[in-house]
Nucleic acid binder design. Structure first.
Length: 468
RNA sequence: GGUGCCAUAGCCAAGCGGUAAGGCCAAGGUCUGCAAAACCUUUAUUCCCCGGUUCAAAUCCGGGUGGCACCUCCA
């Protein structure tokens, strides 16, 4: 498999540290609010990467954190007059509602910053003892970026460029040895949660928690580290600096970053205020459509958010789901008696081709856009197979493959539920009316069935009922 | 100012040296009592513009134009 590595800016052949095992880490949410579509993109992307690696036979240890202590958390808690912990508990719970809805598998480890203080202090201490970090009185413990000769290797920035930049860093220069130095431990301010440390009461800086959690749960060097592109600098760059200085070895071999979700061509973000939470979107489109939409473009390309685009994804996904339902219906139908040998062969070959092409596309830097094309190709072959009377066994092969590859993408095809006896009776009554050519009555019953939440369609193999 | 990314049909989107995938929408057809679903056909002589390299370029190089992102909390 090839993965685009931000470190090298090329698609590199993926090789694990340990054969058959992958250790990966992705930056998780700061739990002070519901998350929005832009936040959802990395969750879905790295869940898909994880699922694919597992599909390819790797044993994956996947760690994704909860940032449950930072400025925004404190602000939110103060606004509501509750504790930071209350906010965290609430939005971690809400996170799971949406993340589970989007069918993101639970990571192997989901540590919280506040439960990793010991590990965090361990890294701060290692840096301080080496003289890489220094104290600014009344402020915090800072990392000296000039102490790392390859600082900037991820973002490909060098310190001179950064210093020359028009950023805000200059404004907060006082006390720092260099504009790029960053806090790894912040001293306590009145009314803020704090923990004891060798430098006094305080709380962790932003970047340090990830370094600590990676070390604690996965080790000093991991295979893959992921996150959104906006985290490349300064967050990931600083994580690298801290971890590598403290541990004396490489933090991660592959750095994978997803592009943004845009609204009218601009990045969806909390600061711009142009965001849509998953909780809101799901009022209009089901979770599986949102996931399918995210995967319909390559993860390194921006995707634009709009109602129209979601609608198109919904229609497309519907077609795939309908295909699965049609296959299942015919396989289970007594009236379907397919026996055409060439049709059977054709669809079985199509299933195999879809599989091979799917793997090739996913191997190429997780090209889910092309992988979805393979699904459509299989759908068309399967639909044709039904028309051409392929055997039930062949249809089952197609259905199994369809479930297999959509499953790797975490795309849920709505499963047909058991039809209540009441509905089945109505369907029979309608069939009788149709046989008697009483179409008015047949249509009346169909409307009745529809009003009860089911659809009935007439196929050459009898009526097919589905829950709407 | 520095550093990157992007520009392909009405919309979305792959392809990244070998002669334009796929999806949505639209039109016509087949099937059907009508629907629904499905299938078939049609929809870019052409990939922002100008040069160059090559037998061959949407794909590589140079120069434009337009858009976005990062350098500051941010997925």
């Amino acid at each position: 498999m090839k993965l685009f590595n931000t470190l090298t800016r090329t698609k590199d052949e993926f090789k694990t540290i340990e054969p058959g095992k992958v250790k990966m880490y992705a930056c998780g949410p700061t739990v002070y609010n519901y998350f929005h579509l832009g936040n959802a993109r990395p969750f879905v992307t790295f869940d898909t990467l994880r699922r694919y690696l597992e599909y390819r036979g790797y044993e994956v240890e996947f760690c994704q954190n909860f940032t449950d202590i930072d400025d925004k958390m404190i602000k939110r808690a103060n606004e509501e007059g509750v504790t930071v912990k209350d906010i965290a508990e609430r939005y971690i719970k809400e996170y799971y509602v949406d993340a589970d809805g989007l069918n993101c598998k639970r990571p192997t480890y989901q540590p919280r910053a506040t439960e990793s203080i010991g590990a965090i202090i361990g890294i701060v201490k290692a840096l301080y003892d080496q003289g890489i970090a220094y104290v600014i009185e009344g402020d915090g413990v800072y990392y000296d970026v000039t102490k790392k000769e390859d600082y900037g290797k991820l973002s490909h920035y060098n310190l001179d460029e950064l210093n020359a930049g028009g950023g805000e860093r200059k404004a907060s220069y006082e006390g720092k040895k260099n504009p790029g130095d960053f806090a790894i431990w912040k001293f306590k301010k009145e009314g803020e949660p704090s923990w004891n440390s060798p430098w006094g009461e305080g709380r962790p800086g932003w970047h340090i928690e990830c370094s600590a959690m990676i070390k604690k749960h996965l080790g000093n060097t991991i295979d893959i580290h992921g996150g959104g592109q906006d985290l490349i600098f300064p967050h990931h760059e600083n994580e690298i600096a801290q971890s590598e200085s403290a541990n004396g070895c490489t933090l991660a071999n592959y750095w994978v970053h997803n592009a943004f979700v845009n609204v009218d061509g601009e990045k969806m973000s909390k600061s711009l205020g142009n965001f849509f939470t998953i909780r809101d979107i799901v009022k209009h489109f089901p979770y599986e459509v949102i996931r399918f939409f995210i995967l319909s473009g390559h993860y390194r390309m921006p995707i634009n958010f709009s109602d129209e685009l979601l609608k198109a994804s919904q229609t497309g996904l519907q077609r795939i789901a309908t295909c699965a339902a049609n296959l299942k219906f015919n396989i289970e139908s007594d009236a379907y008696n397919g026996d055409d040998a060439s049709a059977s062969e054709a669809v079985k070959a199509a299933a195999q081709e879809a599989h091979d092409s799917f793997v090739a596309h996913m191997d190429d830097d997780l090209n889910t856009a092309d992988a979805i094309t393979d699904i459509y190709t299989l759908v068309k072959a399967a639909n044709t197979a039904i028309d051409n009377k392929a055997s039930k066994e062949a249809l089952q092969v197609a259905l199994d493959m369809l479930n297999e590859i959509t499953g790797v993408l975490g795309i849920v095809l709505k499963v047909e539920e058991d039809i209540p006896a009441e509905i089945t009776e109505l369907v029979e009554q309608r069939a009788a009316a149709k046989k008697a050519k009483d179409f008015a009555e047949a249509d009346r019953i169909r409307d009745l069935i529809t009003s009860k939440g089911y659809s009935v369609k007439d196929t050459p193999n009898g009526p097919q009922v589905e829950k709407l």
